[in-house]
Design a protein around this nucleic acid. Structure first.
Lengths: 186, 186
DNA sequence: TTCAAATTAGAGTGGACACTCAAAGAGTCA
DNA sequence: TGACTCTTTGAGTGTCCACTCTAATTTGAA
């Protein structure tokens, strides 16, 4: 894995895995399909990855990390910033976002490392939304902000999900409705 | 399929299928597991069902139908009635509701009949929510009510989804937040 | 140019899968 | 009871899966 050729092949394999997981889900993605799309034979695949799962986990990690934008902005962004960032992620990285939603949905399969990562990611995400909420309406109690933030995050996931079935679905508009409704209360 | 024994076996198989699909998803459910849980051998399974898919489709249909409560009430129920009914379904039929969410959400696999059924179900559901919204705030335009209703339905799905990962999740509370937020705007 | 290490090729393995089938066993009529 | 149909049995089939292995080829540092 030190030569240039190997690194290129690795990228081709990850790209193929990303597309296939986005299209067919975690279970529906086979080594054969990955190899064909990447223009590689099984021997090459297993020279670079220990297992099918390793390739998929790599792609999934990539997807989870891509959802959390600008980690530096922690503590300054508004609720709208966070919602906008998510919408942008959904629109600008359709393949990665499909991967992200697929795991969120299928519970990350049976991989414990991935499940743990997804749960932690969710908690962090809710925390970040809750902090933005509290900044916006300081008289909100800590726990109420957390719970309301979770409602919003999960609702956004519900919206994002529908795009797997209907690619033309207007995610931005619906996300905006959720944001406005939440704002109308506080 | 005319004798009593056959009908009983059929029910046992469907029950096993329902549990397994709820637990392991559509792809993760195997004939072997269904047969073991139902206390039946493959030959018996194939005496009653033409394929694994047929058994799964039967269970999925059941789940989709169970979401739509009281079809007679059409045209009289409030938004809160509809939300409450969904929450009740989620809490009282956990297995069916997991099946429902798994397909609604994963795009029903690659079965076109099932996908079509799910899309139609979604549209009807949105229509029913939209009608309740218009009844509540008559000055809402037709299309706006539809789109806002869709936002609500999808957000509810997002909430329901989280229960697959966390069975202790308080669906009712979060559903209420969505309902109240939506009401606060109109 | 040499040569060890990295990379590919591609046939092959064992296991799990959905599904079949012929024969034996029950249930339900006349 | 006889006769017919439905049901169960359980070993068996072919296919596809993730994954392995050996030998050939390519790479790049010295």
């Amino acid at each position: 894995m030190r030569y240039k050729a190997g690194l290129e092949t690795r990228e081709r394999i990850l790209g193929a895995t990303r597309s296939l997981v986005a299209q067919n889900g975690l279970d529906g993605t086979t080594i054969k399909a990955i190899c064909e799309l990447a223009g590689v034979l099984p021997g090459s695949f297993y020279n670079l990855f220990a297992s099918k799962e390793q390739a998929i986990v790599t792609v999934v990690r990539e997807a989870i990390d891509a959802v959390d934008p600008d980690p530096d902005h922690h503590g300054t962004d508004t609720l709208q910033d966070l919602v906008d960032a998510y919408v942008r992620f959904l629109e600008e990285s359709p393949e990665l976002s499909r991967v992200y939603i697929r795991i969120g949905v299928s519970g990350a399969g049976s991989n414990p490392e991935l499940t743990g990562r997804m749960v932690r990611h969710h908690q962090e995400r809710v925390g970040r939304f809750a902090a933005a909420m509290k900044r916006q309406s300081p008289d909100l109690s800590e726990t109420l902000a957390e719970r309301r933030a979770e409602t919003l995050v999960l609702a956004l996931n519900g919206i994002a999900l529908h795009r797997i079935i209907d690619p033309a679905f207007d995610v931005a508009w619906h996300a905006r409705v959720l944001l406005d409704d939440a704002a109308a209360v506080s």
